[in-house]
Design a protein around this nucleic acid. Structure first.
Lengths: 204, 204, 204, 204
DNA sequence: AATGAATGAGGATTCATTCAT
DNA sequence: AATGAATGAATCCTCATTCAT
């Protein structure tokens, strides 16, 4: 005759978590990590400060959770490409995918605001993990693309990877900084530029 | 016996100012704007906190001063190009020049740490001014280069400008984020990419 | 021609420190460690919260400083007894000395409020150090007193030490708890009890 | 269809109450009043926070309940001595009884942690009541013992009472503070000391 | 000019308590 | 009765800034 406690409702919990993560994304993007006060995040999420810390032990943990979401998303993307043989196309698909993510303006702002903000060991680790997920994901396909001759082979794989990321970072920067630079409108140009980056060149 | 106020020694004053600006650059780059405490800036500069506020009324004013230095530098660069007729070369020279600035690692970190940090109206204005200086400077030469046919004409001037800046921002990002991505070593690749960006393309 | 900065005035600094320590003693005694808010300590000391943390990096550090004062005081007492040969008298002198310290009512409250409050490693260590200073100090003289036959020898030194401390702790308890139990008035009784404790007994 | 409120099962209720009191004792002893969070008490008791406040309206009420248990226990002890004529023995029995209570280590810690913690009027009152129960209980028997000449008469009753309590408090202190000071092992010494305290002395 | 002690507003976090289920 | 999510007041501490020397 044990009282049946209300079973922890995992949906409710997950929903609240998402709600806070969403607010965190908004506020981190707008103010940077240090400038994002928990009070503002709470107000944005429409919750009390106590609730915040009920879900995330520290502000840094919220940032980590957001970053992990991104990391997972990246890993999922690359998992989904397994078995494809058109490696150059996979690379362009990733670029398109990354650009699509930036259509949520907050994503762009977030990336910029938080890059290099290694305020805590945990944050640094999460940042590093995310970076690694992208780098590892791209590495495989650049390598294959070099093997099948669909991208230039005069540069080391890691350098090409770095430059793809460079262009994507620059793209995020612009989306974040200038209202008139819209991810959607500029995506074709982005794809063209990455293609030019990977092309062997006239004398390749 | 009237107290004769010691006349301000302008050299001494300017030297101190530079010293603080230098420390500010270092610390802003390492920690971001909000993460850079005035105490740390003072310690880095080897001065007392009182001295800091003697030179800069607020922390934001230091940031503004640094940004203005950059703006001036950019304007000077473009002033110095007046009268040249090899417009495409001017563009590449600017890219080379910007990359050279990033050889001071702090510059790269600074750009990233401070981008979008519109903590104060004054800072926002300074950020905007710097952006405008680059954009205006480039605009003129892209326009001329389009006229003399040395760069692609299928895109509006402002879009080409935006993309040059995009690549430079991405470059700064990488320099700031990855120790193994060295400005000097990657500059040739940078120039190649900008050239590819400006090229008419195979069928242009 | 270096500007001569106002040399840090060590007297002023020490005075402020004492002022804060004094307030800490008062408030810790009245409220216990956890119940003593830094805000109340500051109000008691007549300083701003910033000043508090200028002198003590954390609340625990203030407690440690107070405890260290006590430890030093104890060590000084025993140092000053070096060379005496009337060991039993030294023991009674210590008891008298300890009782005299309790004439500041706050001392009694403090001892009680803070005993066993091992909130932090640093506090635990300071508490342990103070305990050790007393114990070590007494140990030497009890040992000598046993050798010269002026105290009972049917019990181990450490047990006699523990019981002297026990009576002193109980004394402090009473002083702290009951307004009508005044240290000064009860000191003769205290001395008598310690003497009875150390006596060989009728059949010794 | 009137809802019939499930009649409170008093046994169940009392059991839960004891369970919480037990956890409270443990945690107050280990951490002090302020340091004992309700969350920790709940975890220790194996209940949810809601349940806690279902049984005790505030944290202070739990403390009061524990103190009242002690007060009742003391009153019960003295009630049980009614009619005895060997008054000095009753005093020693009480001391033995009090020492036996301290064999539960938590009791010693509790007494120390909570002494003087007059955080709330209700707590202060409960503390005062417990103190009074002991004092009143002892008073009667010291008075009788003085009348029948079995304890010293050169001191007022209340002072002898205060000193018995003083030794017991000191004893509790030591038990709480030093693992090697075990209540059981030191009880003979305790009885001896109380006897010495009550003795008329060589010349009495 | 230079200093650093002093300040207090603001920020992250804790915790007793409430309440819907 | 039992639960634990939600709350916000209260706490410790940080930091930009002021000011007497």
């Amino acid at each position: 005759m044990v009282a049946v406690p209300r079973p922890v409702d995992p949906e409710r919990h997950a929903a609240r978590r998402r709600q806070i993560i969403d607010a965190g994304l908004t506020v981190f993007a707008a103010r940077g990590y240090a400038g994002a006060t928990t009070a503002l995040i709470c107000r944005t999420a429409g919750i009390g400060s106590g609730t915040f810390f009920h879900y995330f032990p520290t502000k840094a943990d919220l940032l980590v959770a957001i970053l992990e979401l991104g990391t997972t998303e990246t890993r999922d993307f690359f998992s989904a490409q397994d078995g494809r043989s058109d490696s150059a196309q996979v690379l362009l698909d990733y670029v398109r995918h990354a650009a699509a993510n930036l259509e949520d303006e907050r994503a762009a702002g977030f990336v910029n605001a938080v890059a290099g903000q290694t305020s805590t060991a945990a944050v640094a680790a999460a940042l590093e993990a995310e970076d690694r997920a992208v780098r590892d994901g791209l590495y495989v396909w650049v390598e294959r693309a070099q093997h099948d001759g669909s991208v230039r082979t005069d540069l080391p794989v890691s350098q090409l990877v770095a430059w793809i990321i460079l262009v994507l970072d620059g793209f995020a920067s612009q989306v974040a900084a200038r209202a008139e630079f819209r991810a959607t409108r500029e995506t074709p140009m982005l794809l063209e530029q990455v293609q030019r980056l990977l092309d062997s060149g006239p004398d390749g």
